[in-house]
């Protein structure tokens, strides 16, 4: 059985089941692009030891549904699978997995990039970074799904 297309929780992430889930229903889609975000061992000069992800899980799923709808409205025949992990992650572990299918390859690359940019803008998820010498909550974007300028930024980056 294929996993749900959208998900968030503590289980380790795997791309293959998401690729299979997206490809299973493909008819109009001729391209699949995937993205895996990993925990890196350094960040702005700090030696990172591990990261603990916090999330407002039910609102995150709604944010992912919104991103899926935005992608479906922007790129023909686009389908999205998006899973985010929560809890403690070690260096090299995957924090986010994204798979996008569209009609053609250029759109699939663009839609996949758009998805991760929007996750960073509007998903209620937070990194608590533990590094050599301390720990810090990473604070990025003020989440506002209706901020059209942010959405335009994500689209500009995706289509550059």
């Amino acid at each position: 059985m294929n996993p749900p297309l959208l998900g968030i929780g503590p289980a380790p992430l795997a791309l293959a089941p998401l690729v299979q889930a997206i490809a299973a229903g493909a008819r109009d889609q001729g391209a699949v692009v995937s993205f895996l975000g990993l925990v890196r061992d350094h960040n702005v000069g700090r030696r990172v030891q591990h990261i603990v992800y916090d999330a407002y899980e039910p609102l995150a799923i709604k944010a992912f549904e919104r991103i899926a709808a935005e992608i479906a409205g922007r790129w023909p025949a686009a389908r999205l699978a998006l899973h985010h992990r929560t809890g403690r992650l070690e260096i090299g572990e995957a924090s986010v997995a994204i798979v996008v299918a569209t009609a053609h390859r250029a759109e699939a690359y663009a839609a996949c990039r758009y998805a991760i940019e929007r996750v960073k803008q509007i998903a209620p998820v937070w990194k608590h970074e533990y590094f050599e010498g301390g720990d810090v909550w990473i604070e990025g974007a003020t989440a506002d799904p209706d901020d059209q300028a942010a959405r335009a930024d994500a689209e500009r980056v995706a289509c550059a």
């Binding site: 975000g37 924090s95 986010v96 960073k120 803008q121 998903a123 998820v125 990025g140 989440a143």
Partner: peptide, 9 residues
């Protein structure tokens, strides 16, 4: 819910 600036990904 009150959400500080987000940092997923």
């Amino acid at each position: 819910a009150f959400l500080p600036p987000v940092s997923g990904g």
